[in-house]
Design a protein around this nucleic acid. Structure first.
Length: 424
DNA sequence: TCTGGGGTCCTAGGACCC
DNA sequence: TCTGGGGTCCTAGGACCC
C-alpha cells in the first residue's frame, strides 16, 4: 500500500502559517514576475480564478473581493517543504518525495494498521508540527493513492481529509465517479482520445484492454491501466536517479532590446545554473541558450532561437559555462526585437568522476578550477547568493531585465533580518 | 502595461555505419 | 519501371507533471 500526502494549496498555506490575516480570506500566490496564479486558497478558487490564470485578466475581480495577492517566496516554500518531509520521516520509514508539496509513503509493514486512522494521525502530526494542512490518499499503487488523494481533497467519500481505497469494493465505486482526466498521467490530449472512444471515467480506463491502451497512449497508457487495476508498475520517475538536465529560464521584468542587457541576463542565468549543477554534484557536457520575444504580443515582430555548445570536457566551472552560454547567445542574437525571455539549459549531466576525459585535455588545470569554484561557493554560502559574481552579470540594482516580485512576503524562516517578531 | 519555471519520459525520424 | 537491409545513436518535439 501507498499513501500520498499532499499539502493543501501549499504556497498559500505556507504564507498563512506566518500571517494570520491571510486566514479565512481569498489569497493567491503569483508566479515569477508576478504573472500568473500558481496557488489559490479555497476562497479564491470559489471566486472562479483558475490555476495558471494571468493576474491582469482578473484585476477587477481581485480588487472587488479584496483578494490578498502575493509574489512567490520560493525560499519560504522550500524550507516549509523540508519541514513537512522531516515530519513524515519521523512517522513512516520509507518516504519518497515527489514534488515540493507531495510525498508518497510506502506503507509496507503497516498491514495490521487501520489505514484510515494512520492517515488521520499523519495529517494531525504534520499540522501540529508545521502548520501545514494536508490530505492523505491511500491505495495499492501510487496511481490509486493519487486518485484517493484527489477524492480526499474533493471530499468524495468523507470530509476527514483522508481517503482509503484499499478495500476493492470502495475502489470500484469511487473510480466510476471520477473523470478519466483526473487520473495521474492522463492530460488533455489523452483525455480527448479516450473520450472519443467512449472512455469517460477512471473505471472505464481501468477496464480498457491493455494492448489497446498501448496503441493509443504508448507504454505510459498501458502502465496507467495496470496501476488502476492494482498492479504496481513503479513509475520510472519515482526511482531516485541522477538528474539528467538543469535549467534556469526567466521572463524579463521589462522587454530587453539591447545586446548588453541580454549578455548580463545570460551571464546571470548561466552563473545560477552552474551553482545548481555543483550543488547537485554533477558536471555538464553541453550548454544551451535560448531567447525569444513575447508570443502573446501579435503587434511585436516575433523571433525565437536557441544554440547549443558541446564541451570537450565535462565541467561544473562557472567561467566555462558562462563562456559557452554567451557564445551561444552571440550565434542567435538579432538586433531589432523586443525579447521577453531567455534561458540557459544544461543537458547530459554526468558525475564528474565518471566523465570521460577529452583526448586533448581541454582543461589542463582542473584542480585550480575546482578550488576557484569552492571559494566562490563558500563566499556566497556565507554572505548570500550573488555576493561574489562575475562582472558580466551586471549590478543587481541596475538590472532592468530582472523579474518583479513586488508583493513578496518576508523570508520568515531562513533570513535573520526577516524572522517573525513575537511580543509577550 | 501585464501571460511562470523546471523537470521527466516516449516516439519518430534523420544521420550514420557496415 | 527499377533505386538493399538492418542496425545504432542522437535530437527535436509532444505530452505530462507540479
Amino acid at each position: 500500500m501507498y499513501a500520498l500526502v499532499d499539502g493543501n494549496n501549499f504556497y498559500v498555506s505556507c504564507e498563512r502559517v506566518f500571517d494570520p490575516r491571510l486566514r479565512g480570506v481569498p489569497v493567491g500566490v503569483l508566479s515569477n514576475n508576478d504573472g500568473c496564479f500558481v496557488a489559490r486558497s479555497d476562497e479564491l478558487k470559489a471566486l472562479g480564478v483558475k490555476m495558471g490564470q494571468p493576474a491582469f485578466q482578473v484585476r477587477d475581480l481581485l480588487r472587488a473581493n479584496r483578494v490578498k495577492v502575493l509574489s512567490s517566496n520560493y525560499t519560504l516554500y522550500g524550507d516549509m517543504s523540508g519541514r513537512v518531509l522531516d515530519t513524515l520521516r519521523e512517522l513512516v520509514p520509507d518516504v519518497e518525495p515527489y514534488s515540493v508539496d507531495e510525498s508518497f509513503l510506502n506503507l509496507a509493514g503497516f498491514d495490521h494498521w487501520n489505514l484510515s486512522d494512520l492517515g488521520s494521525g499523519i495529517r494531525e502530526t504534520v499540522r501540529d508540527w508545521t502548520g501545514i494542512p494536508t490530505c492523505v490518499g491511500i491505495g495499492p499503487t501510487r496511481t490509486l493513492a493519487k486518485l484517493a488523494n484527489h477524492a480526499a481533497k474533493k471530499r468524495l467519500l468523507n470530509d476527514r481529509g483522508v481517503c482509503d481505497l484499499s478495500p476493492p469494493d470502495i475502489r470500484a465505486g469511487l473510480l466510476s465517479r471520477i473523470a478519466v482526466g483526473e487520473v495521474w498521467g492522463i492530460g488533455p490530449a489523452s483525455q480527448v482520445k479516450l473520450n472519443y472512444i467512449g472512455i469517460r471515467t477512471a473505471a472505464d480506463l481501468a477496464q480498457m484492454d491493455r494492448r489497446h491502451a498501448r496503441d493509443l497512449l504508448s507504454v505510459t497508457g498501458q502502465r496507467i491501466v495496470d496501476e488502476l487495476r492494482g498492479v504496481d508498475c513503479v513509475h520510472p520517475d519515482m526511482v531516485q536517479k541522477d538528474r539528467k538536465g538543469l535549467a534556469v529560464t526567466r521572463a524579463f521584468g521589462a522587454p530587453v532590446c539591447e545586446r548588453g542587457q541580454m549578455d548580463e541576463a545570460v551571464t546571470a542565468y548561466a552563473t545560477r545554473v552552474a551553482e545548481k549543477l555543483r550543488d547537485a554534484g554533477m558536471a555538464t557536457m553541453s550548454v544551451q541558450t535560448f531567447i525569444h520575444t513575447n508570443r502573446f504580443k501579435d503587434s511585436d515582430a516575433q523571433y525565437s532561437n536557441a544554440a547549443t555548445v558541446t564541451l570537450a570536457d565535462a565541467t561544473a566551472d562557472t567561467l566555462a559555462i558562462v563562456r559557452a552560454a554567451r557564445e551561444c547567445l552571440s550565434r542567435i542574437w538579432r538586433d531589432g526585437y523586443r525579447y521577453s525571455k531567455a534561458g540557459v539549459l544544461l543537458d547530459g549531466l554526468v558525475k564528474p568522476e565518471a566523465a570521460q576525459p577529452s583526448l586533448f585535455d581541454a582543461t589542463p588545470d582542473k584542480a585550480r578550477s575546482q578550488r576557484l569554484m569552492q571559494a566562490l561557493d563558500s563566499v556566497n554560502a556565507a554572505h548570500g547568493r550573488g555576493s561574489l559574481q562575475l562582472a558580466g552579470a551586471g549590478i543587481p540594482r541596475q538590472r532592468q531585465w530582472s523579474a518583479r516580485f513586488d508583493l513578496r512576503s518576508p523570508r520568515w524562516t531562513t533570513c535573520f533580518e526577516e524572522l517573525p517578531m513575537a511580543r509577550a
